[in-house]
Amino acid sequence: MTDEIRQIISEHGRLAVDVASLSDDADLYQAGMTSHASVGLMLALEDAFEVEFPDAMLKRSVFESIAAIAEALETLQKQAA
């Protein structure tokens, strides 16, 4: 799953650095992701993983690292299963 997340971040995160250089726990906002870019990332993740983030998850911390995004997606996929 993290490979696919990394691919989507490289397309939508508008980072100042190459996503390949970041660990799963690295702070994406520190890596240059703006609030507007994180919205684009959120919408792209919803498309790719066929989920919808509920309002409670539409916050900064859910999208702050690859690991945090993976955890959120796993939670949503479990709920859907």
Binding site: S35, H36, K59, R60
Partner: peptide
């Protein structure tokens, strides 16, 4: 919209 809720949460947190 929904993306706006995320922008608002980010704005508030910062």
């Amino acid at each position: 919209g929904r993306s706006g809720r995320m922008l608002a949460a980010s704005q508030r947190q910062q």
